[in-house]
Amino acid sequence: MKEIHVKDITETVEKLCIEACTTLGNDWWQTMDKAVSQEESTLGKDMLGIIRENAKLAASTGEPICQDTGTAVIFLEMGQEVRIAGGNLYHAINEGVHRGYTNGYLRKSVVSDPLIRKNTGDNTPAIIHVDIVSGSDLKITVAPKGAGSENSSGLKMLKPADGEDGVIQFVMEVVEAAGPNACPPVVVGVGLGGNLEKSAILAKRSLLRPLGKRHPQPHIAKLEEEILRRINSTGIGPQGLGGRITALDVHIETYPTHIASLPVAVNIQCHASRHAEAVL
């Protein structure tokens, strides 16, 4: 057994909240470079240029890339040989979110009740997904998710007969309806299969995959490319002002499903594809 103290978890989550809200990965910078060179619209190129300039400024000053520093979505991959010492795992994570959002001057965007809507004041609680895996490591991923893109997401329980065409059709419906509201160029995460909640988590998790990386299964990789091609033919373009680059990438994750089901979840990610990871 490896013992991990809650104090280390809290400190790591605090650091990751700030890191994720102020810096973007190398994959993002490479994809944006390619996007600028492929964009045909002058205004679209300008928009991509401003988005890059903003990301550069955020990284150098430590100011958040976007004022919507989101709900703190946290993925844990917890080795089954790990023992949490010194307190409760969930409390430790939420304490890290509290500190990160307070000490990092990040916006507090969480209300305690969906109808009464009173701000909790420290962006807690986080939304936490735990996977138990082999080994003795604890991998923590913090993915702050803003509401502009989250509100543009959707889920549909298709019929098996709808097949690949039905999947493409639904993804396109969600992307077109999102239009400029989701701050394009977007990243489109698709969860295919499983059941209602499994498809949604797959869609969200697919957004953590590096941009430009294809699914290992050839038929899914091909579907990703086909959907990306169609999205970039809509003309929505950067910021929705018209152009070629509406999406930076499409990621699909799949899971076995019921003989009668074909769930499809589409999680839209704005251009600020924010996530930061650490392994304890």
Binding site: E176, T234, G235, G240
Partner: peptide, 17 residues
């Protein structure tokens, strides 16, 4: 609308919406 006018120049496929 700036969106309608900007997007129509670059649209290659019919909208599904």
């Amino acid at each position: 609308s700036a969106y309608d006018e900007g997007q129509s120049k670059y649209r290659l496929i019919h909208s599904v919406v």
